[in-house]
Computed example of a mutant assay.
Amino acid sequence: MTGVELDRRLRIDPDSDIPLWVQLRTQLEYIIATGELEPGVKLPAVRALAQRLGVAVDTVRQAYDGLAQAGFAETRHGVGTQVTLPARSAVPGNDPWDLRQTAKVDAALLELLADGVTPTVAGRATQQRLTMLRLGLRVSFIGVRASAERYAATLSARLPDGPGAIKALDIEEFRRAGVKDVTHVISLVFHVREVEERLAEQPVRVLPLTSELDAEVFGRIRRLGDGDRIVLVARPATRHSYEALIQERHPGIPPMEFVADDDDDALRRALPDAGAVLHTSAATPLVRRAAPRAELIELRHAPSERSLDQVLNTLRTDGDLMLRLQRSTLQ
Rank of each mutant, 00 (worst) to 15 (best):
F258I: 03
R25A: 15
R158T: 01
L137A: 06
R134C: 01
D106E: 15
M256C: 05
A152V: 02
D106S: 10
A215E: 14
D13K: 11
R205L: 11
V192C: 02
H191R: 10
A237F: 12
L112N: 11
I230K: 06
G40Q: 07
T314H: 05
K104E: 14
P251R: 07
L321G: 04
L188C: 07
L224D: 02
L213H: 05
E29W: 04
G252V: 06
P203D: 12
L312P: 08
T126I: 09
V204D: 07
S147Y: 09
S307W: 01
H191W: 15
G164V: 00
L325V: 02
H250C: 07
V117G: 01
L267S: 03
T210P: 07
T118S: 03
T238C: 08
R150E: 13
D17L: 10
L199R: 00
L321I: 13
H250L: 15
A244T: 13
V311E: 01
E243L: 15
Y30W: 12
L137H: 03
P285L: 08
L67A: 14
E298W: 04
A244Y: 10
T84F: 08
V22Q: 12
A45Y: 09
V185A: 00
R324K: 13
P14D: 09
L312I: 15
L85P: 03
N94Y: 15
P19V: 02
H240G: 06
R134Y: 03
R158G: 03
L155V: 04
L286P: 06
D228W: 09
A50E: 00
D264E: 13
D115F: 06
D264L: 15
R239K: 15
I32T: 07
W21A: 14
G225M: 08
E295N: 10
L315W: 07
S304V: 12
H250M: 08
T314L: 06
I12L: 07
V83E: 02
L207Y: 02
L10Q: 00
V179F: 05
E173D: 12
V4H: 04
E38D: 11
Q101G: 14
V311D: 00
I166D: 02
A290I: 12
R176Q: 13
G225T: 15
T154K: 09
E243Y: 07
G116T: 03
R61N: 11
V22Y: 06
Q62W: 03
